[in-house]
């Protein structure tokens, strides 16, 4: 049987969704309360790492494949850059928060600070996906020295 014992599996089944939701909450309210994209992304990655530890990596990869995670990483970077470029397009200043200047929301509400929630979402993807990918890569691909002294890379078959 892959993964850990039935106790860990049952607790993981109950808890995983709450961890995931908490990560999303921390990301989306990053401009209102302590937290933000970095912390939220790490929490999201933690929920998938918990799945990997409890159920084995086939299960985790069936939920979020390596290819999707890589794409999410790139999408996060693109969200961040394109949002910064919008400011350049409108007022010729890179990283200008034009949305806040043109359509300011009510302070202390979810829609307040213009582009900052978007930046947070981009950073969340940018931090969470690489953490998951790095964990999987470190856990799934191992280098060992065989009897003849050659380096071997042991690797799961990756569906592209």
């Amino acid at each position: 049987m892959k993964g850990m014992t039935i106790i860990v599996k049952t607790i993981t089944r109950w808890v995983k969704l709450f961890i995931f939701l908490f990560g999303i909450y921390v990301t989306l309210t990053g401009h209102l309360s302590p937290g933000g994209g970095f912390a939220g992304g790490v929490i999201l990655a933690c929920s998938f790492i918990l799945l990997t530890l409890a159920y084995g990596k086939e299960y985790a990869l069936s939920r979020l494949s390596l290819k999707t995670a890589k794409s999410l990483d790139s999408i996060g970077a693109l969200i961040f850059l394109l949002t910064a470029l919008i400011g350049m397009w409108v007022t010729n200043v890179f990283f200008d928060n034009v949305l806040q200047k043109l359509f300011p929301g009510t302070d202390f509400m979810l829609y307040s600070s213009g582009f900052i929630p978007l930046y947070n979402i981009g950073i969340c993807l940018k931090v969470g996906a690489p953490l998951f990918v790095t964990f999987i890569v470190m856990a799934a691909m191992r280098i060992r020295i065989n009897d003849k002294g050659e380096r071997e890379i042991i690797q799961e078959e990756e569906e592209e």
Binding site: H31, F95, S113, I116
Partner: peptide
């Protein structure tokens, strides 16, 4: 910036270039 969390305001608005570098 309209951001109630001043740390987010600093890292994403005043110091956006640093965050871009980190990314």
């Amino acid at each position: 910036t309209g951001s109630a969390n001043i740390i987010t305001a600093v890292i994403l608005d005043y110091r956006g270039y640093d965050t871009l570098g980190e990314a």
